[in-house]
Write a protein that binds this DNA or RNA. Structure first.
Lengths: 155, 155
DNA sequence: ACAGAATCCGGCTTATAGATCAACTCAAGT
DNA sequence: ACTTGAGTTGATCTATAAGCCGGATTCTGT
């Protein structure tokens, strides 16, 4: 589940998961996926159900006194939205408007769907292109110094 | 799997893997290969399936909030494209247009296919020649300072 | 509570990109 | 010179994305 595809967001703010990834998700018996914020960049993360389960469990189990940890819990857990396959094995995700805003993705626009192995990212395609060529994003990159407790989680 | 061959990209942006390498891949029971960006130079990397598996697994497992790590994940995982042998044992790879652009390889042009042992590289043949003679590439080389966590991965 | 409006969700159709299949030419070796 | 295999080009076909439409459901305002 690698590589990227340019997809279009329809007039209703929906995103269709590209078939090549869908097929693999089906093959792995994944029944749902979860969309949430990327904690650093103006982008969205998409996790297959099983991956989400382990990441969210790990995040929840962390003690909540460290401000960075709490922030991560809010942004990742608090913005999660689950979708599942339709009876024909297709998947059309309705991106909640807060997530669309966060990732600067408008309706009827192009977006980049990026396969990162066990998870995916969705970018406004202009931002993705800028990233690829080393250009500036419209939103600043956050500098994050991670506490030890997070070093083992790969978001 | 060493040495280099000059190959040509056809009008549709396709690349045929030279027979001498193909045969060795077959002999090693490799069933697919993965093309992706070289993280430093305007060139493409081609990994046999098994090699790709270990590299991509290592990359994914790295903690994902470090900007350098994420950049590597994006460029390597996010640009990967898999191909497999056809029934006759031949292999014709369609190079995605973004990869062609990145490596400055145009349709109907020559390219250099370089065997590096357990992986291959594909260069615009002018750039390859320039590299060989110490001349300047048309695109600057990126300076990359690798964090310790990446020192063990041989891309 | 009801009506109207807006939003959400599924089905259908069509243009297209990409994968497969096939054929031709060239080069090399016997 | 003939045969075989490789490289290259061309053609076809299938799967998919995306646009469109209509029905259903929820929300809102009166």
């Amino acid at each position: 589940m690698f590589g990227f595809t340019t997809i279009s967001i329809d007039a209703k703010g929906r995103l269709a998961v590209p078939a090549k990834y869908r097929n693999q998700l089906n093959a792995q018996n994944e029944e749902s996926i979860v969309v949430t914020r990327d904690p650093q960049y103006p982008a969205l993360k998409i996790y297959p159900g099983s991956i989400w389960k382990s990441i969210s469990t790990e995040l929840q189990s962390l003690q909540g006194l460290d401000p960075i940890v709490r922030n991560l819990q809010w942004t990742i857990l608090g913005n999660a939205s689950e979708s599942s396959f339709d009876p024909k094995g297709r998947m059309l995700i309705l991106l909640p408007s807060e997530l669309r805003e966060y990732a600067e993705i408008q309706k009827e626009q192009k977006a980049s769907f990026i396969g990162m192995g066990n998870k995916f990212e969705v970018w406004n395609d202009k931002n993705w292109e800028a990233r690829q060529t080393g250009g500036a994003l419209s939103t600043e990159i956050l500098e994050v110094v991670l506490p030890e407790s997070l070093k083992t989680i790969s978001f």
